[in-house]
Design a protein around this nucleic acid. Sequence first.
DNA 1: TAACATTATGTAATAATATAACATTAATAT
DNA 2: ATATTAATGTTATATTATTACATAATGTTA
Lengths: 135, 135
Amino acid sequence: MSKMHKEHTLTKNQQIIFDLIDKSPEPMKAYSILFNVQKKGINAPLQVYRALDKLVEIGKIHKIESRNAFIACHNSSCQVAKATAFSICEICEKVTEISSTGLSKYLANFKDKDGMKYSKYNLEFFGLCKKCTLK
Amino acid sequence: MSKMHKEHTLTKNQQIIFDLIDKSPEPMKAYSILFNVQKKGINAPLQVYRALDKLVEIGKIHKIESRNAFIACHNSSCQVAKATAFSICEICEKVTEISSTGLSKYLANFKDKDGMKYSKYNLEFFGLCKKCTLK
DNA sequence: TAACATTATGTAATAATATAACATTAATAT
DNA sequence: ATATTAATGTTATATTATTACATAATGTTA
Ligand SMILES: [Zn+2]
Ligand SMILES: [Zn+2]
Ligand SMILES: [Zn+2]
Ligand SMILES: [Zn+2]
């Protein structure tokens, strides 16, 4: 049997935290998440970080490394947790996941001169979004 | 007169911290830097972070975002503080700056479908270095 | 030079991000 | 049923980074 797209049933904490991130229009930071889910019985940072770790691992969310923040994946439950690219507006901090076949092919095939084999990459572009360019 | 490569004269703190990072075989973290320069009269985190900020700004060092660590630029005093690419070994944590004309051209010219104009990017590849592959 | 502006420094306190350690419970596999 | 693995709850602590404020050094201009 070929390796299929495994459906991960989220646990209660994972689901609560995913739902929150998923409906957020912007990347969320761990302690902001914590603050928002305390009414639902999640009290400690570690509970948040554990859920975040798992969600990142299964590709439901991604971490924006330069911002220490998390966004939901909208590439129809991302197969590409290991190949991520984002655009980040340096004024309004809007973050968008880039899904470009050309880009991902180029990067997946990229070989450096040391012949290192890559299994994963993360790319963050910075600039001004349309809205902020017009201001 | 054309825009030339500006030589930045480093201040005392900046020089001390740059020298330390420059001779380190691996990326250094801020508090490890602090520990190492205390004998030279740099006592507080803020002194380190201020020097790091400046050194990053002028392209003498780069921050490895996924590791919260800093490495010296070895692209002959990098013009490309705004266009960085690294390979990171997930076992030994060896980090190498990638300098590939093809890659940087490709990324500099990349346009997403929203037509966002990028002024900067950071790319981190993950995998196993040669040494770790053989183990 | 004097006045002003800009950049860097020193120091203390604190904020923000993330993990260690340990006990317990739930879910899965044999 | 039992063993194993994964998830949870809780407390404490480690790590990373910034705010606020006072002072000193440097660069610019008149
Ligand atoms: Zn995605
Ligand atoms: Zn914007
Ligand atoms: Zn460089
Ligand atoms: Zn290695």
